[in-house]
Amino acid sequence: MSNRITITRRIVQTVCFVLLLYGAFIWPAHLETGLPRIPGGAPRTTLYEKGRILWVSGKESVVDLYIPALACRFVARGGLLKSCIVHFFSENFTWRTSFRLMLPHILALTIMCVLLGRLWCGWVCPMGAMMDAMTWLRRLTGRGRLQVGEDQQRFLFNTRHLLLWGSLAVSVLIAFPVFGQGVNDSLFLIYCQFCPARLLYPPFGGVNPCWSDTTNTISSFLTGVGWAMFALFFLGFAIPRFWCRICAIGALVGYFNRGALLTIEKEPGKCSSCGTCRRNCPVDVTRVYSDRRAGVVTDPECQLCLTCLEDCPEPGALELRLLGRRIVRS
């Protein structure tokens, strides 16, 4: 059994992990951006003070680019790229940034999503890399994974869409002073406030994230939610890519997955129904197995890790195509 794809993916993931978490250590460049900025270190409002959840360590990012994977504003020294797609919409909705300024970023993000779909999750995202590392460690011990039933899978699937749209809705609402200023502050970047990356990434750069914020009831509550999510992250030891099943970024990028230009395609005539793709899928996608029509079998949940394609024993049954051109086949 060849494992060329897995090895390639591990290398890409490692490189992306290093670039996204340590990029600002390597290239201490200054950012030129038209968008409003969160100034690190020198707080403009209480929101960014040390001791608040949204305290930003160090500087701005090196490159003015948001990506549909978990690059993060809270990385030490600001990181190489600006942050994730959910962060982009949340902050700019709240700031009521002019559409003219957002347009280049929206275009760039749309192109990235339409081109590669959730390949971002499987190959680029440092959170994904950490989830994979956890699975790898568990397998070293020979322990089994926890099975996720169909109902639980559906529950997680629904939850993530609720998190995504709920967070975006809050970000829009607090742009208008109906809640009052204090509430406004505490609900800013609400998704970041409980995303485990905010707690996980800074320590990699030697920075202590803000573990608790008891400024008011809302920030205390969100601190609690953040801890709960942080704990859930470690369920990744028992369930492969557990966080990815909740992640709102994944939910958003997943909308593009079936229409993306990068596709997994199946030739049903070559399929022997052995079930390997279903059994070995880290996120329990069944579509690759159960779809018996020719053509695209990419699922919204699929992260294009290509495990199915690599493990498929039938030459030519599965293919990865970009714009209809074959890149790799089983």
Binding site: R139, R279, N280, P282, D311, C312
Partner: peptide, 17 residues
């Protein structure tokens, strides 16, 4: 004809495979 391609290596996973 059929190989067994493994990812999970617990006893349960091996038996299922």
């Amino acid at each position: 004809y059929q190989p067994v391609a493994l990812r999970e290596v617990s006893m349960r996973a091996l038996l299922d495979a």
